[in-house]
């Protein structure tokens, strides 16, 4: 038997919004320690890795490890039936064919239940090597979303260049060029408003704007995003999810032909 109750049901709604445009379907792997999801987009350019720890749920029970293959468009339909202030409980039997989503209003006088058919997904899991990144940037997630949105008007690719002086995002296309430079913050009142750069060596890499814009759909999950870069390896874009876990996006760079 599997049961996971989340009083802050809006978090699960936001998580789904953060992955549903990138992934058509995905396996939710449930174990005693929590729920994990790892999936590539259809083009195999990016990878989503989601971890929700069991201790972040208000109630969590998982007697046997189980994998629930879900169509994310179907799950989105169900999540639209859940109010932002409602409590979500996910339930499934051992070796399940279906998963049940139960939504409770805060005062308990309305309970909705939706049962969704599961899919058999033969998804490969990829091993993500431990990496000491050359540059790790922490910045306000809203600022990152804004930069991705602004620069993607000009070209399909964005160059991210990080040095000790700061970080520069740039693009070029038919109508011209654009760039945004962010300096490391010297002093801030609020930590989540800071731009913090931890740099071992400078890095310049090129990425597809389309994917970065997709990752930015996780912005409502966290005020801060971290970008980890090293030469010739995928970029990691991480959003922490309150006290429960994180969503990480890995994006393969554009490389010299």
């Amino acid at each position: 038997m599997f049961e996971a109750r989340l009083v802050q049901g809006a978090l699960l709604k936001k998580i789904l919004e953060a992955i549903k445009d990138l992934l058509t379907e995905a396996s939710w792997d449930c174990a005693q320690g929590g729920i994990q999801l790892q999936a590539m987009d259809n083009s195999h350019v990016s990878l989503v890795s989601l971890t929700l720890r069991s201790d972040g749920f208000d109630k969590y029970r998982c007697d046997r490890n189980l994998t629930m293959g879900m169509n994310l468009a179907s799950m989105t339909k169900i999540m639209k039936c859940c109010g932002n202030d409602e409590i979500i409980t996910m339930k499934a039997q051992d070796e399940p064919d279906t998963v049940t989503f139960m939504f409770e209003s805060k005062n308990g006088d309305k309970i909705s239940e939706y049962e969704m058919k599961l899919m058999n997904l033969d998804q490969d899991h990829l091993g993500i090597p431990e990496t000491d990144y050359a540059c790790v940037i922490k910045m306000p997630s809203g600022e990152f979303a804004r930069i991705c949105r602004d620069l993607s008007q000009f070209g399909e690719s964005m160059v991210i260049a990080c040095s000790k002086n700061g970080i520069k995002f740039s693009t070029s296309g038919d109508i011209g060029t654009g760039n945004v430079k962010l300096a490391q913050t010297s002093s801030v009142d609020k930590e989540e408003e800071a731009v913090i750069i931890e740099m071992q060596e400078p890095v310049t890499l090129t990425f597809a704007c389309k994917y970065l814009n997709n990752f930015a759909k996780a912005t409502p999950l966290s005020p801060v995003v971290s970008l980890s870069l090293s030469p010739d390896v995928p970029l990691v874009v991480e959003y922490k999810i309150e006290d429960i876990g994180y969503v990480r996006y890995y994006l393969a760079p554009k490389i010299e032909d």
Binding site: V45, G127, A208, P234, L251, A252, I255
Partner: peptide
């Protein structure tokens, strides 16, 4: 010219 790399070039199947 740059071409888009695949994520599977970097991360191997488990």
């Amino acid at each position: 010219l740059r071409k888009q790399a695949s994520i599977t070039c970097f991360f191997r199947k488990k």
